[in-house]
């Protein structure tokens, strides 16, 4: 029985009914990222403090004097969500220890987009993870600087056309491979790293809950389809996320204390990446040859991952 097809049956038992990110925010229609943020908040529950980087999710949820947040939330700047979260964690820890606040356990979460995480906030994130703060960092990766208008980041995949790495007469869009951020986090030797996608809500929620249960730093890399930036219909955000997983472009896995595990949602046999590319305007210019090259890389990377899962169980 497919759990997603029977969602109505399972959902009330599996998902927190409380909305901690309320409706009425200003996200684009079909935004998979804001859905992911909503699921994240549900998974974390009320005893959570969130530090957000500048970006889409900050802009759409906190237009003064309104807020969409029903949990404590702070935004300071673009590159420092992880540092701010680490400071909140340290502050709350001291206050709790000294009896200045009630002794409930509060999880501190830093969040940012791919630019805020993989580019400008990379150092702050590395520092916070290395220092071992009891916090979660979630990267909502929509593969470009969407808030400023679809400029390329180090999370943009090879070949994607963006406003600063456009496809042109002599260029095929992004010229570099996507930075493997989850692996960089694994290299920090933190207790828990996972990839997730809101197209697989139960998998995502389970991973968030696991991260919440872990004392110490954890990192979730959440693949977040952006119909606006990827030039795909807004009603296809969920299916596009599933295709990214099914083609191995964005494999779902987790690494717990160095042990790799592919998520049960991963198919035994991958679909060809052209199935995933064809629905997106950002890949429209790619030649069959170029798609083959990218296919080769995706296959190799996925093989590397399955080998790790085999030998680092």
């Amino acid at each position: 029985m497919n759990i997603v097809e029977n969602f109505d049956l399972y959902a009330p038992r599996l998902i927190n009914k409380k909305e901690l990110l309320s409706s009425g925010h200003r996200a684009c229609s079909g935004c998979a990222e804001v859905l992911a943020v909503r699921l994240m908040a549900k998974a974390l529950g009320e005893n959570t403090v969130i530090a957000s980087a500048t970006g889409c999710m900050e802009i759409v949820s906190s237009m003064f004097p309104t807020t969409a947040w029903n949990v404590p939330w702070i935004h300071v700047a673009f590159e420092n969500a992880a540092s701010v979260a680490s400071g909140i964690e340290a502050g709350l820890k001291a206050l709790r220890k000294k009896g200045k606040i009630d002794d409930r356990y509060v999880k501190v979460v830093g969040m940012g987009g791919d630019g805020a995480t993989m580019d400008i906030g990379f150092q702050a994130l590395s520092g916070a993870m290395e220092r071992g703060h009891d916090m979660i960092y979630v990267c909502f990766d929509n593969e470009a600087y969407m808030n400023t208008g679809i400029q390329r980041s180090s999370g943009t995949p090879m070949g994607a056309s963006t406003t600063t790495a456009p496809a042109g007469k002599v260029s095929s869009g992004q010229k570099t491979w996507k930075k493997n951020m989850p692996e960089i986090m694994v290299a920090h030797d933190i207790p828990y790293v996972a990839t997730a996608c809101p197209s697989y809500p139960l998998d995502f929620i389970r991973k968030m809950e696991k991260a919440k249960s872990i004392k110490g730093p954890s990192y979730i890399h959440c693949f977040s389809v952006c119909p606006t930036g990827w030039r795909c219909p807004s009603n296809q955000a969920i299916s596009m996320g599933r295709l990214a997983v099914e083609t191995g472009v964005f494999p779902l896995y987790e690494v717990e204390n160095g042990h790799y595990r592919l998520s049960p949602d991963m198919p035994k046999k991958l679909k060809p990446i052209k199935d995933y590319f064809k629905g997106q305007g950002r890949f429209r210019h790619l030649s069959a040859e170029e798609i083959d090259t990218i296919q080769g890389k995706v296959t190799t990377e996925f093989k590397k991952l399955t080998e790790k899962a085999k030998f680092l169980k």
Binding site: S83, G87, I88, A90, G91, K100
Partner: peptide, 28 residues
């Protein structure tokens, strides 16, 4: 001193962390 001493990786993060801690109500 009964305090959390956070050895950040930059001054940018030093100020970010004290903003977070102060926002949480800690004397920072």
């Amino acid at each position: 001193i009964d305090a959390e001493f956070v050895t950040v990786e930059s001054e940018h993060s030093a100020m970010s962390a004290v903003i977070g801690a102060s926002g949480a109500g800690a004397r920072s």
